[in-house]
């Protein structure tokens, strides 16, 4: 982690997003706070429906409204609150200062434009380059993400690329304007492990070269262990634990994080006789939380969990956890 620069390039405080649906309100994001520094990679882990993607899309107003509504909070990009700026300014931010890589490379590229056009579009819009200059920049970007024969492939259409190649094009588009923050929403989930390894290597490489802040959403703890500096675990629309990567994996405090780490089998080491499971289902977020979202599945549940929603509490060394149980504060699992 770079120590010199302690300024937060992106700071999110107390963000809440609610969807108004015909079946009632869905509280998808409940007072989420986090920050990222330049050159840092923050991993966001959680199951589907835990609010990871919705959080990130709320940041730059990508959710259709209605039904989505950002109820409260602030999103500070270099001190400027993105929830209060004009739509014009927001358009400058999207793709310009904040790059976004979407989950599914198959559906997030426009099939009727060639990839050259799609890469050049943000460059011309945000950087004001001419067509010829933009083309040069597009070639540079495609080479950066490791697409062979970059110049010739600018005129190809998305269907002429494989899944891994398309994801590289997505990365190239996200990087096009040297964003300060790159948000990657499950960028490797739709890809095979060998292709995922290629993409991870490119991202590691680019981070060293370009020094941008990255927020990496995934449900794969293995991926996070390999690339993240800090990790934030989400459950039921809330941040339940947040820590630098080593403490999170070696000394997880929240019962959900612990259980999650135990459920995944490994390709090396001893093989467990039976897989650990987290019983039950993730919660349905019909109302603003008044109690711990994990209480129904938690092995350590006690009275207080049903009455109050735990707040994130610092347990030292940049590690915080939202849990009432004494084990969460004192560390090292003794009983769990």
């Amino acid at each position: 982690m770079p120590d010199g620069d302690t300024r937060n390039v992106l700071e999110v405080n107390d963000l809440s997003t609610v969807f108004q649906t015909r079946g009632g309100a869905v509280h998808a994001v409940n007072s989420v706070s986090f920050h990222v520094k330049p050159g840092e990679l923050l991993g966001v882990v959680g199951e589907s429906g835990s609010g990871k993607s919705v959080t990130m899309m709320s940041l730059i107003g990508l959710l259709p409204s209605p039904p989505a509504e950002v109820r409260s909070g602030e999103v500070l990009l270099d001190g400027e609150d993105l929830l209060k700026v004009s739509p014009e300014r927001l358009r400058d931010v999207r793709g310009g200062e904040i790059g976004f890589i979407f989950q599914d490379p198959m559906t997030s590229l426009n099939p009727v434009f060639n990839v050259g056009f799609q890469i050049m579009e943000p460059i011309r819009r945000h950087m004001g380059l001419s067509k010829a200059q933009a083309r040069e920049r597009a070639v540079e970007l495609l080479e950066l993400v490791g697409i062979p024969g970059a110049r010739a492939r600018l005129t190809d259409y998305p269907h002429q690329f494989s899944g891994g190649m398309r994801q590289r094009v997505m990365i190239a588009i996200a990087l096009a304007c040297d964003p300060k923050v790159l948000i990657a929403d499950e960028p490797t989930t739709a890809l095979d492990v060998t292709i995922q390894a290629q993409i991870l290597e490119i991202v590691d490489d680019l981070r060293a070269k370009l020094g941008m802040a990255i927020v990496w959403i995934t449900h794969d703890l293995g991926v996070v262990a390999g690339i993240a500096d800090r990790v934030m675990v989400m459950y039921g629309g809330q941040v339940v634990e947040h820590a630098p990567v080593h403490p999170l994996f070696n000394d997880p405090r929240h019962p959900y994080t612990r259980a999650l780490l135990k459920t995944i089998p490994s390709v090396s080491g001893a093989r467990a006789k039976k897989l650990q499971v987290i019983e039950g289902q993730p919660p349905i977020l019909g109302a603003a939380p008044v109690a711990c979202p994990f209480r129904d599945r938690c092995p350590l549940v006690f009275d207080r969990c049903h009455q109050q929603n735990p707040l994130r509490e610092d347990v030292g060394a940049g590690h915080d956890v939202a849990c009432f149980h004494p084990l969460a504060q004192t560390g090292r699992e003794a009983v769990a």
């Binding site: 494989s162 891994g164 190649m165 492990v193 060998t194 292709i195 995922q196 390894a197 290629q198 991870l200 290597e201 794969d220 703890l221 293995g222 991926v223 996070v224 262990a225 390999g226 990567v245 080593h246 994996f249 070696n250 780490l261 995944i264 490994s266 390709v267 090396s268």
Partner: peptide, 23 residues
């Protein structure tokens, strides 16, 4: 070797990760 290990200590020292080129 391409399967990510859910352990940051191992991930750092994972020697000789073979990254296949191409598709």
């Amino acid at each position: 070797s391409a399967v990510p290990e859910p352990d940051p200590a191992l991930a750092g020292q994972k020697k000789g990760r073979i990254v296949l080129q191409g598709d």
